[in-house]
Design a protein around this nucleic acid. Sequence first.
RNA 1: GACCCCAUCGUCUAGUGGCCUAGGACACUGCCCUUUCACGGCGGCAACACGGGUUCAACUCCCGUUGGGGUCACCA
Length: 481
Amino acid sequence: MNQTPVRVRIAPSPTGYLHVGTARTAIANYLFARHYGGRFLIRIEDTDVERSRSELIEPILEALKWLGLDWDEEILYQSQRTEIYNKYVQQLIDTGYAYCSYVTAEELEAARQKALAEKRSFYYRENFIQLPPEEIQRRIDAGAGYAVRLRIPEGETSFDDLVSGRISKKNEDIEDLIIARSDGTPTYNLAVVVDDHEMGITHIIRGNDHISNTFKQMHIYRALDLKIPEFGHVPLILRPDKRKVSKRLGDKDVAEYKKEGILPETMFNYLCLLGWSPKNDREIYTREELIELFDKNNFNSANAVFDEEKLLAFNHAHIQMKSDHELAVMVAPLLVDAGLTTKYWLETRWTYLRQVVAVLKERVKRLSDFVAIGGYFFSFDYKYDEQAAQKHFHPEAAGLLSELADRFEKLETFDKVSIEATLSELADEKGLKKAMLIHPTRLAVSGVSAGPGLYDLLEVLSQPVVVERMRKAVAFINRPG
RNA sequence: GACCCCAUCGUCUAGUGGCCUAGGACACUGCCCUUUCACGGCGGCAACACGGGUUCAACUCCCGUUGGGGUCACCA
């Protein structure tokens, strides 16, 4: 069997943030490495001086860390390896697999346009554009550089893809690709092959938008006489409009999901199940379970649409799996950021926060929902929901609230049992349904008509707060005008 | 347009020739639970793109059509 230890990598280019497409590829590689006891590496593809921005590297790494994708060895930066690439390029020229071309980018573009207009395909071949010897000399004298192209032989190229099986292409449909630009810098395809070889990569797991690159890269491997790794082209993640996710189309930064209150476990779980399946009916898994379950043969071949609605459902499930304490740790800074409380205040009321989280968690889809629906646990400064107030804050309600507040105030122990007993007693005395007391009370203490069970809600809020808020509501109902 | 990949409910998927009257999840929806909102439970709606083969038997295999996606840079 295969004795070589697995080595895989994710190779982001710092031309933007980390979007879900790259994140999914990263997860696939990570799972591959962790399941098969291999190594997961990172390489930064910053050979494009024009578009690469070093300040974008850190956010990308941060996003990977957030997802829990810890890497194993030092990160490789392509921008620091130009000399190495040049050595390989020179080797290809020396061995006759590559040739130099003085044709300019403009001339190529013109030829390409012409071919397009005439509805011909355009695959560049040596001497496709003939330059007279004296013109070449003139360009050399003028100090022009040359681009280096790989000569594609006749025949057919094919490989066995981990996902799609055997994929083939006629060599006449592969052009003599440029491996070094006229300014001497290497291009993507050359650098990738060289690095994957030098890093000892055994399996290249990437999006299926790279299939056409794979054919080109195979020719570089062969010309360099290097061992060709295994390829797995995983399905792409599509937007709801079926286009592939991309930064240019404004697709979200993974960090944005973090801001919106998505747990990293959720993102990891959801992204993993997009284009890959454990082949059963279960969907919610922890990271560890997915590592255990991972199977390189279970990739799907069809592209998958990213559904935020379902992501939210996954997030709800993962939030339920967290302990109240864990959730409290995550929610605390959000409350502070929202200006609902202070770090200091929370420090002395950790139990309270935990109780709040406990009664709220099952109705929360995002971490940020704790803030959105539970503000009243931390601030008296809320308005009564207008519709609910019209319905429940009628004149009789004022009397009932006042009476109930008085009785609450006299309770020696204020817990859900005594609260319910007190409320039921009053309802019985007045010959009213409990709902007649419950709704106004809920509105009085929270400002809204939806939330945790009333008895839990009141117990968590505590006796003095409840009484004060109820009396405030009475004053509100009886306000003049 | 050329080349490559792909094709089961709206979406994510299970299904590897008979277990399929096609299963699960999200969304939508009915009922139950219930003080509200959720949660939960029980139901419902909803798919094998089409046409040819192969076979006793095709969602499953082959071919074609159609459709979708991707790639066609001195970007990565």
